[in-house]
Design a protein around this nucleic acid. Structure first.
Lengths: 188, 188
DNA sequence: CGATTTGCCTACAGATCGTAGGCGATCGTA
DNA sequence: TACGATCGCCTACGATCTGTAGGCAAATCG
């Protein structure tokens, strides 16, 4: 009986693909076992169970988006940086819906530290350096921006924009315009 | 054997409580059956299954928040209306986390029409009437606002704000200030 | 008061989770 | 090359959940 060459990393990547193709709910021990051609019990020596599996997808997604975001922000500032960062998030949500959904899972506190989560906050903060938001309001601005980056794709993927004009792309551009203006003229 | 007096409405309400107390994942046929003191099979004559159950919680949550929002917006305009509407959403998310999570579920298209979903868009639009956002940008502004109303509580409940200062309440107020200013000075 | 309806039941088949323990492939060592 | 230890995936199992079929008794109606 040949060995399948499983390990936690390989499984996490396979789980991520599964999430994107069939939804995060499909990411289960038995579902993943089917996909990698192995018996469910075989997975338990590599991952702790379904919850663990999904958390690994979440960590993967956070890493991926952080890397993409770092790339997008590098060498840009102000409006350019804002748009680039925002598009990374929205594009990722649309291209990798399962991973993006996973990245919304609540991480156990001990995993947060080592995760890419804090890097996202840092990258958002970096975008703000192109504007002159007062330091005292920096966190508020980061959270507001983060809310839009999480909320817009969430509504978009949820189908909330499907039955009204104009299309989502148009209003997204307009919303980013508005955010740019807001950051430039942040109230004091 | 006494009858339990079950019906779809009673079950939906019990499921909503269950969601708030133990999380939306706990809303299952067997979980609900335990809670209402009945055998799982007994529920299938009232609801179609776990998915149906959760959708009913979602519809309930949309109705409840729409009613609260309508109340909050009534008789207010401009900044007052904005803050009142926003607080309804955030307060609901914190008080009823399970229901709020359910309201994020993707509804089958045929349910959307009869749901309170469109009413939420209408209420947000009503808030905008207190500002002079150009009609062509109204949808963009509605979606931007909606993104924050969805995104901020999402990050907040996800624990994203737990380990940084200042506290979430403070930055929320500041973010609403900023949105108010943005809507008042919407870029043309 | 008897007949029908209706609500919750028991029983069951299928699937999943997670654990225990086995067997053979692989690898280190001589 | 041969042998022994390790380790990876296996089978087997118990517990739980989903959803269906059919039964019995409580409620309702003539």
């Amino acid at each position: 009986m040949p060995r399948a060459g499983l390990n936690p990393e390989v499984l996490a990547r396979a789980a991520a693909e599964l999430a994107d193709e069939e939804g995060l709910e499909a990411v289960t021990v038995s579902g993943l076992a089917r996909r990698v051609g192995v018996r469910p019990a075989s997975l338990y020596s590599h991952v702790a169970g379904t919850t663990d599996l999904r958390l690994r997808v979440a960590l993967l997604a956070l890493e991926e988006t952080a890397a993409l975001a770092a790339d997008a922000v590098a060498g840009r500032s102000g409006r350019d940086a804002l748009v680039a960062l925002a598009d990374v998030h929205r594009d990722y949500a649309r291209a990798r819906p399962g991973c993006w959904a996973a990245s919304q899972l609540r991480l156990p506190a001990e995993l947060v530290v080592g995760s890419a989560g804090p890097r996202h906050a840092e990258l958002t903060r970096a975008v703000l350096r192109g504007y002159d938001v007062p330091p005292a309001d920096e966190v508020a601005a980061v959270r507001l921006l983060g809310s839009v980056l999480r909320g817009y794709p969430s509504l978009e993927l949820g189908g909330g924009f499907d039955h009204s004009e104009p299309d989502s792309e148009t209003t997204w551009r307009r919303a980013l315009d508005a955010l740019d203006v807001l950051l430039r003229a942040w109230p004091r």
